[in-house]
Design a protein around this nucleic acid. Structure first.
Lengths: 155, 155
DNA sequence: CTTCTTCTTTGCAACAGTTGCTGATCAGCA
DNA sequence: TGCTGATCAGCAACTGTTGCAAAGAAGAAG
């Protein structure tokens, strides 16, 4: 993820206006947890700009995503997650608390054998490891009731 | 996926009642396309039972899923997909038409290296290959407007 | 600094997918 | 055939997200 200053430049270069809302969102993303949902970004931005609307956060996040400055994940945890890490990587998803972390191992050798492709052209390969994170193991929470209140599905 | 008769037995064994709705859903699943959404199952069941409610379809699908007789996928294609194939496998997702197909290759050697785990205990590994299916390549459709009208995200 | 144009932000309605609720109905059993 | 708890239909409600129109602000020009 580029710095707020770089993103500002980038927006300017595209003829987009630099508004305090946008700058605030850039900052939030820069210093945020790994894979925030739109709602999480909203909450963080609201600390310094209580009047911002959720709509604007979605708007800007989508802008960034379509400019390729932000990845978008749907891991079945209820809401889309925005991923500031741009280089190809994979994910560890905790089925109890919903936390997502990155795996930067290279799995380029994971290929679909020719015989199974049936003409399909693969563009990207995404690997999701589901399980239980260290914290949740320690706390021995049971599955009923996730810490983040998601209602996710198994991917 | 078990046969309608086997599922009927299974339900009976659990003390669940055998209703025409359920039987109809069992049949639909048995003879259905690979990865139907709840809506798709609903449409199919409606052919022979026009009065069934979508609510009942969701209910039964969820019952089957929690009995482990049906997998549930969220591939970012808008709606959850139900997967009658129970043995571990992976998926090919067409980014144009949203079609999902199975890859039965064994990827058990795909492991997160110890150093990246940080105590995370992996339960399942799911690999999603995104790209363009043979049909869509042939038809040379452009990305704007998916054939199935989904608004999916990149996983 | 004022004005003008254009892009943005907002707030709300609408949307899709899914679930909760409730009275009416039915399957399974005696 | 009649009981009774399980199930169903139908609709309201809910979550996450987007469309829309009006109001507001950024940036360029004068």
């Amino acid at each position: 993820m580029k710095s707020p200053a770089e993103l500002t430049e980038l927006f300017r270069a595209q003829g987009l206006k630099i508004t305090p809302q946008r700058v605030s969102i850039f900052r939030a993303l820069h210093g945020s947890a790994e894979h925030p949902s739109a709602e999480a970004v909203y909450e963080q931005v609201r600390v310094e700009m209580p009047s911002i609307s959720l709509r604007t956060v979605y708007q800007t996040l989508n802008d960034l995503a379509s400019m390729g400055e932000l990845g978008q994940l749907d891991l079945g945890t209820g809401a889309a997650r925005f991923d500031p890490t741009l280089d190809p990587h994979h994910h560890l998803v905790c089925e109890r608390c919903g936390r997502v972390s990155d795996v930067h191992t290279d799995f380029t050798d994971v290929r679909v054998p020719q015989g199974e492709l049936h003409g399909f052209r693969v563009a990207t390969t995404q690997i999701v490891f589901r399980g239980v994170c260290a914290d949740c193991q320690r706390e021995g929470r049971d599955d009923a009731g996730r810490a983040d209140g998601t209602r996710g599905r198994t991917n």
